[in-house]
Amino acid sequence: MRQNPSFAMTDVAEIRRLIEQNPWVTLVSHTPDGLVASHYAVLLDDDRGDLTIVGHVGRPDDLVHGLGATELLVVVQGPHGYVSPGWYGDVAAVPTWNFVSAHLSGVPELLTPEENLRVLERLVARFESSMDAPRLMWEAPNDPDFVHKLERGTIGFRLTPTRVVGKRKLSQNKSDEVVENVIVELERGSGAYADPRLPAEMRRDLATRKAAR
């Protein structure tokens, strides 16, 4: 991801917030057979305060990715949406796409079966917590044999990235008036590619930049 100083996101707390709110990521590896991409949910490592993440892949994706032996790129995609040049007013302009994203790279550490079980348990708890009647991993009708068989079908990993590129492109190169108008159009749901989370992210960013002036 090409970086632009105007859009760089380097604050660890902000990237952690991005990961926490957007756990469904893309895993990319460069293998002898070419590039390989998979999609899985990850979590921040709850024993760390940095950008270390934990997750799992199903067998045999671990072998396909060379997991633990080669570099892994984790693409975290946050809110994004199309921005029409018509929202800038009567000026020469081209369309663009606003977004928040981060790329985490490094060689992951493979987890022990016990560590992997804990990560699987955390993943289930995280996403079941919003259900009316949550079903956690160890709850009936799941029994211990079922859960351990599930664990054996996966490989857990921990990635402490050695390279991080974060980008927050939210019209920071435009005037406050233009940014406000883009936000209004996004809140209206204008266009087929509107993301309801994007205008809130833009409002938050604009407020932060104003406060820093």
Rank of each mutant, 00 (worst) to 15 (best):
P5C: 00
A8I: 10
M9G: 03
V12N: 01
I15Y: 00
I15T: 00
L18Y: 00
E20D: 04
E20W: 00
E20A: 00
E20R: 00
V28A: 01
S29G: 13
V36N: 13
Y40T: 08
Y40I: 09
L43K: 13
D45C: 14
D45W: 03
L51M: 02
L51V: 05
T52N: 07
T52M: 07
G58K: 04
R59Y: 10
P60Q: 06
D61V: 09
V64A: 13
H65C: 10
A69F: 14
T70F: 10
V75E: 05
G81W: 13
P85Y: 15
Y88E: 09
A93C: 08
N98C: 05
N98T: 07
S105Q: 12
T112G: 14
E114F: 08
E115I: 12
L120A: 15
R122S: 14
R122V: 01
M131G: 12
A133N: 15
P134D: 14
W138Y: 06
W138L: 13
A140P: 14
P141W: 09
N142C: 07
P144Q: 08
D145Q: 10
F146Y: 14
F146M: 04
V147K: 04
E151S: 02
T154A: 02
F157A: 09
T160Q: 01
P161V: 08
T162W: 04
K167V: 03
K169N: 12
K169Q: 05
N173K: 11
N173D: 10
E177Y: 12
V179W: 05
V182M: 02
E187S: 04
R188L: 11
G191E: 07
Y193M: 11
A194V: 05
D195G: 13
P196E: 07
A200Q: 03
M202P: 15
R204M: 01
D205E: 12
L206P: 07
